[in-house]
């Protein structure tokens, strides 16, 4: 599958569930429908003759620009989900994400202070969960969305056990 130039060589990435695309689609729909609705209000008001100021072209251009942007994001979602990957190594966990702006992160087990598993309403319906790792640094923004619940639980147990065994002080 997708590997990029910045991935360490020889890593077999595990991918998150394809069902996570649905979660992202719901998030996308909620966010963008509201957004485009708001930006279309001036067009409505101008059409109704309540407002004089925004000329018609501007009132049309702004929401359609947002619409194009939103559609672009929509097209990207499946690829973005496919780009999320993780790999358990002997001493650390690798997490990668992103297509245009790629990020590959390594979190040593010995540095993990605690592991969170959270489930949102849509995720619950699809049987998914989100795993989040915390270290002493706020910069470690390591979350792994779209894991099947069983895999999330396994990973949590695994990470906690390994973290316990290798825990180091700050």
């Amino acid at each position: 599958m997708h590997t990029a130039a910045i991935d360490p060589p020889g890593i077999q990435w595990l991918r998150v569930s394809r069902k996570y695309v649905t979660v992202r689609l719901v998030e996308w729909a909620i966010g963008n429908v509201i957004m485009i609705g708001l930006f279309s209000l001036p067009l409505l008001f101008v059409q109704l003759g309540w407002w004089k100021w925004p000329p018609l072209w501007l009132a049309v251009a702004v929401p359609s620009a947002f619409l194009v942007l939103a559609l672009w994001r929509l097209v990207l979602i499946p690829r973005q989900v496919r780009a999320i990957g993780y790999a358990e190594r002997d001493d650390d966990l690798l997490i990668r994400r992103g297509i245009f702006f790629q990020r590959t992160m390594v979190v040593p087990y010995g540095r993990m202070q605690y592991v969170d598993v959270s489930v949102g309403p849509v995720e619950r319906m699809l049987g998914l969960c989100t795993l989040k790792l915390h270290t002493a640094s706020p910069g470690t923004n390591a979350h792994l969305p779209g894991l099947p619940a069983a895999e999330g639980a396994r990973l949590r147990e695994q990470l906690s056990a390994r973290g316990e065994a290798r825990l180091a002080g700050l």
Binding site: A4, A5, I6, F100, F101, Q102, R103, T104, M105, V106, V107, P108, R111, T135, A136, S137, G139, T140, A142, L170
Partner: peptide, 19 residues
């Protein structure tokens, strides 16, 4: 003292082969 690390690469950086 290293806690964790991340490699970042945006499109422009990829064009120039840097990260």
């Amino acid at each position: 003292r290293t806690q964790s690390m991340a490699l970042h690469q945006g499109p422009l950086a990829r064009l120039f082969g840097v990260a």
